[in-house]
């Protein structure tokens, strides 16, 4: 997600190339969409989006990559799958959202919601370190780095008192194997 991962096959941001790249990478045939708007109507996050799910698919057809990769929408979508399950043309819209997020990251486009990507990165770092998520450390780091330290302190304390936060990490035995998997993915990315 740093410099090393920036731009390799993903140079095309606009036009037909982008449309086909989305189709190929997501495996979803966005060209089947006929704008029935079912996806946007049922989306629980629509209010917070700058581009509605149906518009995302239309813009993907038109190859308007720049706007999509810089949109608020891709970081606000909660992957609830409501849109995907309802699409009459069997387009897994939520998966297209995943593809757009991944492309945006790989192209080094700064996400509109910085805290979201910070959380994801810390979460994955935790898996890489222990094989499982070590919430106490993840939350502490997240609070510190997002500058939200005091905001959730009371909740954190209450969770702690209720024994909802494990004190020690659960490290898996084959952590070497887990790290190898991460390393291979990174190599594949850069190669």
């Amino acid at each position: 997600m740093g410099k090393a991962r920036t731009i390799r096959t993903d140079k095309v941001i606009q036009g037909a190339g982008f449309a086909h790249r989305i189709k190929e990478k997501s495996g979803e045939d966005v060209f089947r969409c006929y704008q029935c708007l079912k996806c946007s109507t049922g989306c629980p996050m629509a209010e917070a989006m700058d581009i509605l799910p149906s518009q995302v698919i239309r813009m993907a057809q038109l190859g308007r990559g720049e706007e999509l990769l810089r949109s608020e929408t891709i970081w606000v979508c909660v992957s609830c799958y409501t849109c995907s399950i309802r699409c009459p043309n069997d387009i897994h819209i939520a998966h297209v959202m995943d593809t757009l997020r991944e492309l945006a990251l790989k192209q080094g486009i700064p996400p509109k919601r910085g805290r979201v990507i910070l959380f994801h990165q810390l979460f994955l770092a935790s898996i890489r370190e222990y094989g499982r998520v070590y919430e106490a450390k993840l939350l502490a780091k997240y609070e510190a780095k997002s500058g939200e330290l005091m905001k959730n302190a009371r909740l954190g304390l209450a969770m702690f008192r209720k024994g909802k936060i494990a004190l020690l990490p659960h490290k898996v035995a084959d952590i070497k194997g887990v790290r190898e998997t991460f390393a291979r993915l990174k190599e594949g990315d850069e190669g």
Binding site: M1, S79, L105
Partner: peptide, 24 residues
């Protein structure tokens, strides 16, 4: 020795990782 499924943090950022973690 099960590992974390990757949750949204994996599928929202890297499709292959989102498959590899559950696959392990």
């Amino acid at each position: 020795d099960w590992i974390c499924c990757g949750a949204s943090s994996a599928h929202a950022t890297d499709d292959l990782l989102a498959l590899a973690l559950p696959a392990r």
